[in-house]
Design a protein around this nucleic acid. Structure first.
Ligand SMILES: [Mn+2]
Ligand SMILES: [Mn+2]
Ligand SMILES: [Zn+2]
Ligand SMILES: [Zn+2]
Lengths: 141, 141
DNA sequence: ATCCTTATTGAAAACGTTTTTCAATAAGGA
DNA sequence: TCCTTATTGAAAAACGTTTTCAATAAGGAT
């Protein structure tokens, strides 16, 4: 099921702004703010409104096609998300954001925290920061 | 070494706004935004400027006395932080934020992601969301 | 206790981001 | 091709944060 169908199925429409936002995110491999998505769309000669970027990001996030990435300061970075449970490693030099799969994940840690605190935990926020392979080489030189 | 000394030691001063922000954070057990810290200080008859709240939060964060908590929407929640490596479990009903210690933590996970992605990881963002013991009981009823 | 230096404050204005509003547009089913 | 209505985008409003700068007060020195 493609985006077209996924939208129409819910009474939604595949519009130009939505296509543009998707393609900007597909072209980038780093988290982009609403502003920079808008800027990149203009640079690509695709004139869409900033308001539509905001609305589209909300929608795509709702649909699980896009995920928000929290930087240290900036918390408005959006990246394309593959379906399923994922997290991101973000390069603190080039900002490259790479997904990694959950697997056994933090489940052991969750068990321990639940026992220690009495909380029931049903969700988590997990991100790693460091240097991507390319930026490591740069530093070595 | 108390706050007074810790500040003076760096040529900084223990001022009224700084004391108020600290005491508001000490009184609350939930993450507070700059705005709500300001509001609570006014309610406590302690008239300080909103600008000072912002500046004080930056300073206290710098000193490691305060930590930022990322909610799903709101990413400007500040809580008092004990020294050392900690994370938070946040109740999604009453917003209570409880610290837990790192311990072996996510080190195994980090190892795996480093191997998988080639990144070198030196930092992480980790938070859990769920229900605190008190709010669990409420739900049961 | 008083003085002096200067770190800090807070009101106001500037600023950047996000949301709301609403008439005009275009997506897509009929 | 037509019709309904989901969606757009310009403009304005709302919002949160930062900058500016003269007035203030913290705290070391005398
Ligand atoms: Mn996970
Ligand atoms: Mn940790
Ligand atoms: Zn990199
Ligand atoms: Zn609770």
């Amino acid at each position: 099921m493609n985006l077209q169908d996924q939208l129409n199925h819910n009474g939604l429409r595949l519009t130009h702004p939505r296509q543009v936002v998707m393609s900007v995110l597909e072209a980038a491999n780093i988290p982009l703010s609403p502003q920079s998505i808008h800027q990149r769309s203009l640079e690509a000669q695709e004139e869409i409104g900033l308001v539509s970027v905001y609305r589209t990001l909300d929608l795509l996030t709702e649909l699980g096609l896009v995920r928000r990435v929290h930087g240290h300061e900036e918390c408005q970075g959006y990246v394309l998300a593959s379906p399923g449970h994922h997290h991101h490693v973000v390069c603190r030099q080039c900002e490259a954001a790479v997904e990694f799969t959950g697997m056994e994940d933090v489940s052991l840690l969750v068990e321990r925290i639940q026992a220690q605190t009495g909380f029931t935990i049903d969700e988590h926020l997990l991100q790693f920061y460091g240097l991507c392979p390319a930026c490591q080489e740069e530093v070595e030189r």
